[in-house]
Every structure is written in C-alpha cells, then in structure tokens.
Write a protein that binds this DNA or RNA. Structure first.
Lengths: 190, 190
DNA sequence: CGTTGACTTCACCGATCAGTATAGCTAGCG
DNA sequence: CGCTAGCTATACTGATCGGTGAAGTCAACG
C-alpha cells in the first residue's frame, strides 16, 4: 500500500487537493484564493465547495494529504537504509529539500494560521509523530538510558535545520545538523 | 542609547509601526489589511502611505524595528548575566516566549513572504546576526578549536526550540534546547 | 426507465483588498 | 504674514476575497 489513498475522495476532489498542494506551498495559504485553486485544478469553485465545504477544511485536508505522502516516502527510505536509521531520516529531509524551495510546509502553515484553525492540529500531530519517530529510531540503536534525551536533542537539531530551509538558500544548516547528529549517536553507542 | 530610535520617523509614523507590530504578529502579515493598521494606530490610511509608500515597505520597516528592539533587549540581558553568556541568550528567548504566543515573528514572516519581498532580507539578516552572536559567545568561553562547530550546533538547537514556540504550547522544547546546550558547553570547557 | 452523483456554468452576495485623489486643518517657523 | 510639515476626512478605483443559488449536463447503476 505505497500508493497514496484517495480517502474516498472523488477524482475531482483529488485534483483539487493536488492543486492546493502546489499553490499553497508555492505562494502561501492566505495568498492563494479558492478561485485560483479551482482554476489550477481545472475544476469549478462550486465543485471545490461541494467536496470540502470551506477553505479552512481544504487547508486541513491539504496538510493531511501532505503528511501521508511524506510519511510514506520517509518510511520507505528509512526502512531500506543501511546503517543508523536516524541518519536516513535526515537524508529524507535533505532529499526533499533539493526539490522544494520554500521551507517546510508544516512550519509555514503553522506560521500563517491562528486561533484554532483546523490545520493547526494537523501540523501539531505531524510534528509530534516526527519527534516520536526520531526517538524510536534512536532507541533502536542506543542503550536505553539517555535515549529519550538524545532523541529530543536530535529532534531539535533536525527542526533547526528544517526551519532554515526557507530562509537561507541551500541546505547547509540541515547538513550540519546531520553531521552533528551523527557524532552524537556515535558517541552514545560507544 | 537603550531607547529605541525613531529613525527620523514622524510621531504618526511611529504609532503606525507600533500598531503594525501588534497586528502583524498577532494575526499574520497577509491576514492584516492596511486599513486595520491605520485604525489601530488611530491614523488615516493616507498618512500610512505618506510615510511608508506601500504595505511591502511597511512590513520591512516593522521587521527592522522589531529586530532593533529585540537586539537591544537581548544585549542588555546577555551583557549583565553571570556565568556562560550563551545560556543567557537562551534565557532571553525563554523570557520573550512567556509573553509572546505566536512563535518567532521572523520565522513567521519568512514563512509567509515570497519572491524577493523586502522583508525577507531583514529576516535573513536578523538570523545571520543571531547565529554570529551565538558563535561569538561560544568562542569567548571555549578553546578555539571546535568552537565554530559548537556554535553551529547550539544555534541549531536554539532555532529548533524557537521554531516550536508557535506549534506546541509551552516552552518545553526551548527549555530542553537550553539544557542540552548547557551540557555541550560544559563538556567543551572541560 | 428513473435515480443518483459528479461536475459545469454563471450570476451573484457583501466584504475587503492595496492604493489614490482632492481638499482642508493646524502648529511651528522664518 | 506666508510657507511648510504632519495629519484628517472622505470618497473613490478596480480587483479580489470566501461563499452561495439555481439550473443543467452526463454517465453509471438499479
């Protein structure tokens, strides 16, 4: 089941979700109107509202879909990697950074949304899952004691590197984070 | 000169900048119209345009002012702190996080703006200065070798903690980042 | 055959967007 | 006195915002 589930969506709904992904990420959420999304999808605004009900719900659906796709890609890469799995997680982010030039879509969304917007829960859930995954991968390689703290440490490094994908051009920070994480894990194993 | 410079601005211009600071931070840049800013400042839209020329220029001015204020506050705290200066920098961010609930205004702005917006340069300059400050403070306490790498490491921890101010409630991540930075510096000194 | 669901077409709603035009007020200053 | 700077007041532009109403097309399915 590596295919992305359509989640019971109609074909038109899927195209709208795909168009949302492109536009929201490239221009920002508030900067993109529903009219533009419908046009990009080759659909009508009416269909968009029939499927999603509101822009807020569409934003949440866009983030959920993005999370699912990213998670599947990450899992595949991590599971098939030799050596320390947690470094493969950094590699997954590095690979994604090569083709996406506006930073982390989840951090971007969190920065734009306010006041209990539906999308905020999706972002918080996503980041929590990433953090738990980091801790899980660390625990698999390091003696139990100190693993939790090391996991938090590595997660913060990862997030620090990710947060700057949208500010500095290049992936230097993310690469530095990976280097340092590698050293920390090696020290902990020894 | 701890007073914030008005930068040659008229009294009305200053009030507009103050209002911009409140509204842009609380609701986001794209979500706030110039009309609302003028009203919050008790000024007219005409005055706003006479002083700043465009919303884009106003956003850049807001970010510049915010940087100046933050930098002065941070410097005061760091300079007057006992013990490792770099930890005082974390404390400055922790203190700011207590009263500001929408994350880092610079990361938020970077997440919203695109395509060479004037504000993006201000954000990039700000983060570069923070990074250089971290490295400077580290070099003052640690033997030269490895100081640069340790500086980058601590900066990433700081940014990781900051990036989550707008996602998780509370300052747990930032506090964890401080704890880990403290250990790293202690290890390097030893 | 009839129904249902996915989708189109298009006109429309009130509100708001960034930005401009024109005119006038008031206080400080030479 | 007259000029200028800072600001107010109000009306306006054309565009776009999120969202709705009503009618109709088309294919799949029972």
């Amino acid at each position: 089941m590596t295919e992305t589930s359509t989640g019971g969506l109609t074909p038109g709904g899927v195209r709208i979700l795909e168009a949302s992904g492109r536009l929201f990420y490239a221009r920002g959420i508030h900067a993109v109107g529903v009219e533009a999304i419908a046009a990009e999808a080759g659909m009508t605004k009416r269909t968009l509202y029939d499927r999603f009900g509101s822009k807020e719900a569409l934003v949440a659906a866009y983030l959920r879909r993005h999370h699912e796709q990213w998670w599947a890609r990450m899992r595949e890469r991590v599971d098939s990697a030799p050596g320390p799995k947690v470094l493969a997680l950094f590699d997954a982010y590095l690979a994604a950074a090569e083709e996406s030039h506006y930073g982390c879509p989840f951090l971007n969304a969190a920065a734009e949304l306010r006041n209990g917007h539906l999308g905020l829960r999706v972002v918080a859930d996503h980041k929590r899952q990433v953090r738990e995954e980091v801790c899980r991968l660390i625990e698999a390689e390091v003696s139990a004691q100190g693993a939790a703290q090391l996991g938090e440490h590595v997660f913060l490094l990862l997030e620090g590197g990710i947060a700057h994908r949208g500010i500095d051009t290049g992936v230097d920070h993310l690469r530095a984070a990976r280097t340092l994480a590698e050293r920390l894990v090696a020290d902990a194993v020894r």
